[in-house]
């Protein structure tokens, strides 16, 4: 997947190739939070989610990216983590909390779902896309779904 071709005008894309890119992704997340005055626990939830999703890309996929976008109308920070990996074969088991990982994949995804106000995951042999949204201000939450 080509980053430039898929990139929207209103989003920031951080490529994730290995674990050294995680610090950059976390830094961009903090700056995004500052942009809309999100601090404290809410900011911590967002940074931790990005850390978990970016690590999954670095460890289990051949590469990928994290996209950041602020929807000022709906008052949401939208974060999409997508990779070109082989997909997650045991996704249902992971999201049901039945998977005990020694490497951390299950815990990171499950934790991200708990932290996000909206969580949607699509996985196939062509890759995995995790869409999360975090509200700021006083808007209502979205729902959580899996494909």
């Amino acid at each position: 997947m080509n980053d430039a071709a898929q990139r929207r005008d209103d989003e920031l894309v951080v490529p994730i190739r290995n674990e050294s890119d995680l610090n950059h992704a976390r830094m961009v997340t903090r700056e995004t939070c500052k942009l809309v005055n999100v601090r404290g626990y809410q900011a911590q939830k967002i940074v931790t989610t990005v850390s978990e999703l970016a690590r999954n890309i670095a460890r289990y996929a051949s590469g990928g990216r994290v996209r950041f976008r602020v929807d000022a109308t709906e008052e949401h920070i939208i974060i999409v983590a997508e990779d070109d990996g082989p997909g997650i074969s045991n996704l249902d088991e992971i999201l049901a909390g039945d998977y005990r990982s020694r490497t951390g994949l299950g815990r990171g995804l499950l934790g991200s779902r708990e932290l996000a106000d909206h969580f949607h995951i699509e996985t196939s042999a062509a890759g995995t896309i995790v869409t999360t949204a975090f509200r700021y201000g006083g808007r209502k939450t979205w729902t959580t779904s899996t494909t």
Binding site: Y41, Q44, R107, L115
Partner: peptide, 14 residues
């Protein structure tokens, strides 16, 4: 441990 970090870990079930 900062309060917001403790709250995040608790929310994640860690």
């Amino acid at each position: 441990m900062k309060p917001e970090i403790a709250m995040t870990l608790e929310a994640m079930g860690i």
